[in-house]
Simulated scan of single mutants.
Amino acid sequence: MHDTTFITAGDGCRIAYRLDGADDNPVLVLSNSIGTTLHMWDAQIAALTEHFCVLRYDFRGHGKSDVPPGAYSMDRLGRDVVELLDALNIGRAHFLGLSLGGFVGQWLGIHASDRIDQLILSNTSSRLGPVSEFDARIKALKTSPDMAAVAEGFLAAWFPRPMLEVMHPEVQPFRDMLLSTPPQGLAGLYAAVRDADMRRTIALIDRPTLVIAGTDDTVTLASHGEHIASTVPGARLVMMPAVHLPNIEHPKMYARTVLDFLRETEVA
């Protein structure tokens, strides 16, 4: 296990990352949702590191990474991952991205498939709108950011109501991550999502792909996962009885689903 450390991306932004597991295992990159840090995967690390060297990182604008001004782009977020792999001398890796991380996974599958072995796209979409909604959120963050209200809005969309009503212990770390997210960083990533549309280009992905969707997801709808699975050639779809974070609602089922796919396609 290694502490969080940093690389510097091509535009000078420092990106925080962490490696867990044996260095001689295949590498699995984990990519987070917006408003979280690499710690959103903490519950999966023990299971995943039995088979993989797990590489996690904080998006620019989030966690311990730098917070550049202005809008971010999906191209830039994708290149951050490629440059992270380059800096660590990792030629190819498996990739698991949830929500925004799944957007980045799609970009990598389209533009950098030579760096990806197996691809898992969880609770994500190829296009999220409307643009006006993201513009309004960005404006609010720039003029009068109320991160407490932002945090509660995210939590209500991420977790089933019973978990929120009983103050489930898994919820508080996500509230803390949201409250610590810089408004500029959140606005920058909002812009990247606002401007991304990969509904057609994901047909170019040629990597073995698993799509995970939540039956009760109100952020990236189950139908969005179905679209990705039907558009990416040969992709497989797994529906989980969850909202937006099945890795938190069903951590054992989630880890088993991920490992079954990665190890099956590896053996094959």
Rank of each mutant, 00 (worst) to 15 (best):
R236T: 12
Q184K: 06
R56I: 02
R207C: 14
T5C: 10
D135Q: 06
S113M: 06
H62M: 05
Q118F: 11
D216R: 02
S125K: 12
P68D: 03
R76D: 01
R194T: 02
L155P: 02
A203S: 15
D11Y: 07
G12A: 12
K142G: 09
L77S: 07
S65M: 11
T201S: 08
A268K: 14
T209N: 09
D58G: 13
F103I: 12
D135N: 15
T8P: 02
I110A: 11
A192L: 11
R14M: 06
S230M: 13
G61F: 14
L141Q: 10
A242D: 03
T181G: 08
S113R: 10
Q106R: 09
P68Q: 04
T265L: 06
A112P: 00
L108F: 05
F261I: 10
L84R: 03
Q184C: 05
C53G: 01
L88Q: 06
A187R: 10
S144A: 04
R199T: 12
T36Y: 00
L55F: 03
S180G: 05
I7R: 02
D176P: 07
G153Y: 06
H244F: 15
I228Q: 10
N89T: 07
V238G: 02
E133F: 15
S65K: 12
A93C: 14
G185R: 00
R161W: 03
S113H: 03
D42W: 08
M74Q: 05
